[in-house]
Write a protein that binds this DNA or RNA. Structure first.
Ligand code: FES
Ligand code: FES
Lengths: 149, 149
DNA sequence: ATATTTAAGGATATATTTATCCTTTATTAT
DNA sequence: ATAATAAAGGATAAATATATCCTTAAATAT
């Protein structure tokens, strides 16, 4: 579905929402370990998520790190995809036609469309925070490791 | 959603289903032009679709080319994905966890699951032939070009 | 002021995907 | 038999995605 880059972005943002506050910032080492991703690569990706300062915030130096404000945590998952440039993902034709259009539809278009719309609302409806909560109360998990790590 | 490779495979198979019979084989040049894909690359991909001789058949030499039997045309679209090794695509976790599992679900799992199931039936339910028919009667299209080409 | 910490950014490496080209093999037509 | 045709297959190239490493800049603590 998504590139590894975007998968790491989703997991990182959810983890930052789960564990950080303005007073409790997270370092890149902790984040990468928690979400099971390559550290340097993840650093670049989180940088992208800080652009515009609407989603992830960062502070350099001692006691610095990454965090999300309560307001940012309430944003929909979609915002992560937008910052990763994957927002156009849901505009594309499933057979790879240059345009996905009702006027010149591919033979799967009309059956794919309602599914695509559900995917769009999947990311539009839920807040990053609500996903983080599911992890906090152990209804869900953000990595595939067992409790010993 | 899919790699370019798989997109070309889907379009090529649908086109072969639409235009070929055992008596009217199609050359790679015609196919690649019709589906707007790079010819040599498409040749390799169609080769994959001939493995096992269940989907696409091929004959070398003069009057040779690619075709599908009526039986093959009735197969579900899913068969194309299987031959392209994309069958596992729908087993993966949307956040990239190593396992997609009910026991250790990611925070999007339970909402993503029913959508994933619809995607699976999308490819399981419709025959390649029925997609080809939509193109034949101009209810659908297999490239983005206008009628002049 | 200086040293320490941590993210930002640049340069580069590796792997994978996408694509082309050329040779070989099978089939047909003459 | 020979030449022509068309797919099969191998080698290689180009583009993109993934990943690492090192230097720079900003913030803090001493
Ligand atoms: S045209 Fe193919 S999905 Fe819309
Ligand atoms: S665990 Fe993530 S989709 Fe199933």
């Amino acid at each position: 579905m998504f590139s590894k880059t975007t998968e790491y972005a989703l997991r990182a943002a959810i983890y930052i929402a789960q564990k950080s506050t303005a007073d409790k910032k997270l370092g890149i080492a902790e984040i990468a370990k928690a979400i099971d991703s390559p550290q340097s690569f993840t650093a670049k990706i989180i940088q992208q998520l800080t652009r515009g300062n609407t989603l992830v915030s960062s502070v350099r130096g001692p006691n610095g790190g990454f965090f999300m404000t309560e307001k940012a945590k309430r944003l929909p998952v979609r915002v992560i995809l937008d910052l990763m440039g994957e927002d156009s993902k849901f505009q594309t034709c499933i057979l790879g036609l240059k345009q996905c259009s009702e006027l010149k539809p591919c033979p799967m278009h009309f059956e794919y469309k309602p599914i695509k719309e559900q995917l769009i609302s999947l990311f539009a409806d839920r807040s990053i925070e609500s996903l983080a909560e599911d992890i906090n109360n152990e209804h869900a998990f953000i990595n595939s490791r067992n409790k010993r790590g």
